[in-house]
Simulated scan of single mutants.
Amino acid sequence: MTCIIIDDEPLAVDLLTSYASKIEDLEVIGSFNNPIDALKLLRETAIDLVFLDIQMPEITGVEFKKIINPDIKVIFTTAYSEYALESYDLNAVDYLLKPITFQRFLKAVEKVQSKSANAITNESNDYIFVKTEYRHQKLLFSDILYLKGLSDYVAIQTNDGKVLTLQNMKDFEQILPNNKFIRVHKSYIVSLEHIEYIERNRIIINGEHLPIGATYKDAFWDKING
């Protein structure tokens, strides 16, 4: 299980990093004193868990939780008990009150592991829920034409228009069924069903010309040619 640690106090980061190193199947991918710096990593890398301080400059942990992928598990870490109720309203896995002991840290991690083990994936689903603004929007796979990764968000082009989300391309590459979708460029994932035709190194969907990147070309043609 991969995690990152976000806390504006370097000593708190060092402590949690030390605790995490004692748990065999918990890997710290990065640590940050500023949550803004963590956003780039979360957009580019699939992370299972975030240890997140609440009181920080620029953006609070509560605000940060609201804009990241809702599938990422969050354990809040703070010196202030008054935020506990709000953290549970945000579906945080746990709330660790500083000073944090290793036993309490371990219990929180085990709670995440238990939730992951009990998660049920319904392979028959023909839809996903996407976090956009302050709601989770249901999108049918059959309605999605393609996804375009931009600097700070992903634009999902559907039959009904465009949906914007702060989830990243890595997330969608894992979530979307690979018999229906394929990544063809660092900035594009396309629906195989909606490809109208392929012209040289471009895919045409709904009149739009989408590039096929050199890195993805071989895998794309392998998929197309069966």
Results as ranks from 00 to 15, higher is better:
residue 147 L to N: 04
residue 158 T to I: 08
residue 112 V to Y: 03
residue 162 K to V: 11
residue 174 Q to T: 12
residue 141 F to H: 02
residue 199 E to N: 13
residue 38 A to Q: 03
residue 95 Y to P: 06
residue 105 F to V: 07
residue 59 I to D: 01
residue 38 A to L: 13
residue 124 S to P: 10
residue 101 T to I: 10
residue 26 L to E: 00
residue 148 K to C: 04
residue 52 L to W: 02
residue 22 K to T: 02
residue 177 P to V: 11
residue 176 L to K: 06
residue 198 I to V: 09
residue 192 L to D: 01
residue 130 V to Q: 02
residue 221 W to E: 03
residue 6 I to G: 04
residue 184 V to A: 01
residue 149 G to C: 14
residue 21 S to R: 13
residue 172 F to M: 06
residue 190 V to Q: 01
residue 19 Y to T: 05
residue 213 G to K: 11
residue 85 L to I: 15
residue 32 F to I: 12
residue 205 I to R: 05
residue 95 Y to A: 07
residue 71 D to G: 05
residue 225 N to D: 02
residue 160 D to T: 12
residue 183 R to V: 04
residue 106 L to M: 11
residue 73 K to Y: 06
residue 43 R to F: 09
residue 88 Y to L: 10
residue 26 L to G: 00
residue 99 P to W: 09
residue 39 L to V: 14
residue 18 S to L: 13
residue 38 A to F: 10
residue 130 V to K: 08
residue 174 Q to Y: 09
residue 20 A to L: 11
residue 123 E to A: 15
residue 163 V to F: 07
residue 54 I to E: 00
residue 100 I to N: 10
residue 82 E to C: 14
residue 84 A to H: 10
residue 60 T to A: 08
residue 142 S to Y: 09
residue 200 R to I: 05
residue 141 F to D: 00
residue 140 L to W: 08
residue 68 I to H: 13
residue 226 G to P: 04
residue 32 F to C: 10
residue 100 I to A: 12
residue 121 T to Q: 07
residue 178 N to T: 11
residue 7 D to K: 11
residue 193 E to Q: 14
residue 23 I to R: 10
residue 112 V to A: 04
residue 23 I to K: 09
residue 203 I to S: 00
residue 17 T to R: 15
residue 49 L to R: 06
residue 196 E to D: 14
residue 104 R to H: 06
residue 86 E to V: 12
residue 124 S to M: 13
residue 60 T to I: 08
residue 207 G to K: 09
residue 25 D to M: 08
residue 198 I to H: 00
residue 179 N to H: 14
residue 222 D to K: 15
residue 64 F to Q: 04
residue 123 E to D: 09
residue 70 P to T: 03
residue 164 L to M: 11
residue 15 L to G: 01
residue 105 F to L: 10
residue 80 Y to V: 14
residue 222 D to G: 08
residue 144 I to D: 00
residue 119 A to V: 03
residue 155 A to Q: 15
residue 12 A to K: 03
residue 14 D to L: 15
residue 154 V to T: 12
residue 142 S to P: 02
residue 47 I to P: 07
residue 87 S to D: 04
residue 159 N to H: 13
residue 79 A to V: 03
residue 49 L to E: 00
residue 206 N to Y: 03
residue 188 Y to A: 03
residue 19 Y to R: 13
residue 95 Y to K: 08
residue 91 N to L: 11
residue 136 H to C: 12
residue 37 D to G: 14
residue 132 T to R: 08
residue 149 G to L: 14
residue 154 V to Q: 08
residue 170 K to D: 11
residue 219 A to Q: 10
residue 198 I to C: 02
residue 16 L to M: 10
residue 175 I to M: 13
residue 172 F to A: 07
residue 101 T to P: 07
residue 89 D to P: 13
residue 212 I to V: 07
residue 4 I to M: 10
residue 80 Y to D: 08
residue 187 S to Q: 12
residue 130 V to L: 08
residue 98 K to H: 03
